[in-house]
Design a protein around this nucleic acid. Structure first.
Length: 155
DNA sequence: GCCAACGTTGGC
DNA sequence: GCCAACGTTGGC
């Protein structure tokens, strides 16, 4: 059973893990997501899905690269690690709470597609795009094929 | 089950 | 550094 390729936007703080870091390592497990909605989006991911890599909490927040989903969802190992910032005492090996996927570098954009430019496209992107919804903090966001195409056309 | 308090996110 | 918005926690 497979379905067509889906698209996502994933936020990262460049001080913690940037598009250049992803370019260097090639593939990275997306650890540390501790929000149920974001987790559920990762659970819906399939190998080969497209990812817009977004830099948050920085000088120019925006989309900086393209990546791909490189694994099926699996339990985030940091939830079991007492020494990790992401340790979750309520998670067990038998009943993990947090899943993640591996993400692979595809390319870095020639320039940052800034959040304020994305906002200018609000009408074309449509109502449901939570990146530009007021107060939204969701770090893993579904993107439609049309939104994907539009956003990358801004490069 | 309600809701106040608290912690976090993230743009500015 | 500020603060609005949101999610989670825990007392009742």
């Amino acid at each position: 059973m497979s379905s067509r390729r889906r698209y996502w936007l994933m936020k990262s703080e460049p001080d913690a893990f940037s598009i250049d870091d992803l370019a260097r390592v090639g593939t990275e497990p997306w650890t540390g997501v501790r929000n149920y909605q974001a987790r559920n989006h990762m659970r819906a991911m399939q190998v080969g899905d497209g990812v817009l890599f977004y830099h948050s909490s920085c000088d120019v927040p925006g989309i900086v690269g393209v990546a791909t989903v490189a694994s099926a969802p699996y339990p985030d190992p940091t939830q079991f690690d007492r020494k990790s910032d992401y340790y979750d005492p309520k998670a067990t090996q038998e009943q993990p709470r947090w899943d993640l996927v591996d993400v692979s570098f595809e390319r870095k954009l020639k320039r940052t597609i800034a959040l304020n430019e994305i906002r200018d496209q609000a009408d074309a992107l449509g109502e449901g795009f939570s990146l530009i919804q007021r107060g939204s903090r969701l770090s893993v966001i579904p993107v439609t094929a049309a939104q994907w195409k539009l956003l990358l056309s801004l490069e």
